[in-house]
């Protein structure tokens, strides 16, 4: 396999294989926390941070502990525990230093544990045999892609508060999914940016 260039990984993570719009990872928060830009931004920041940390920690654990002990099959269990611990750490730091943000994110912070985006990024790293630099780059890129989509969605939903929508669509999940359809249509066109192997 040809070593993937870092720029390729970065572009892939942010646009071509956008986590929310193309790969469908982390949709719960995509429809749940995008009612206003401020909380969408906070959630995204937390995800980028946790993803970069998780990519680092999981790479170290997988290559220096699991592979030497021939315990690769335990990876799912180990990674989910690592992520849970990291989320606790972020929660602790936010509560201590940024209480306003902590209050506005509310119940969504613990939900990063069960946010498939973080675990997905870590697993994709392992499945693609990325080396350390590539893993961390992919973690950050995926987080940035998540942020881009979250902020776009939140901005659209904020602006569209003054629009009339059919009663059956409402302003909740269904509405967000219709908006996502159109966003996703534009992101699909990034497929041409990187030629497929």
């Amino acid at each position: 396999m040809v070593e993937k260039a870092l720029l390729t990984i970065l572009l892939e993570g942010v646009f071509v294989k956008n986590f929310l719009l193309i790969q469908f990872l982390g949709l719960c928060s995509f429809v749940g926390v995008t009612k206003d830009v401020k909380s969408a931004g906070g959630m995204s920041g937390a995800v980028v941070f946790v993803m970069a940390l998780a990519a680092t920690a999981s790479y170290a654990l997988y290559n220096f502990v699991l592979i030497p002990l021939k315990l690769e099959f335990l990876r799912t269990i180990v990674f989910i525990v690592v992520i849970a611990a990291l989320v606790q750490l972020v929660e602790f730091i936010l509560r201590k230093h940024v209480p306003a943000l902590y209050r506005s994110l509310g119940i969504y912070l613990p939900l990063i544990t069960t946010n498939c985006a973080v675990l997905g990024a870590v697993l994709i790293n392992v499945m693609n045999d990325y080396n350390f630099i590539q893993s961390v780059t992919f973690g950050i890129a995926a987080g940035l892609g998540y942020t881009v989509a979250m902020l776009m969605m939140a901005a659209i939903r904020e602006k569209s508060n003054i629009v009339n929508v059919p009663k059956a669509v409402g302003r909740g999940v269904t509405y967000a999914l219709f908006v996502a359809t159109i966003m996703s249509m534009s992101f699909v066109n990034f497929f041409g940016v990187i030629p497929l192997e």
């Binding site: 193309i22 999940v173 699909v188």
Partner: peptide, 13 residues
């Protein structure tokens, strides 16, 4: 991917 979003959005409506 757009098809997935569209299908589920229409069904939910």
């Amino acid at each position: 991917s757009p098809g997935a979003f569209l299908t589920i959005a229409v069904l939910m409506t």
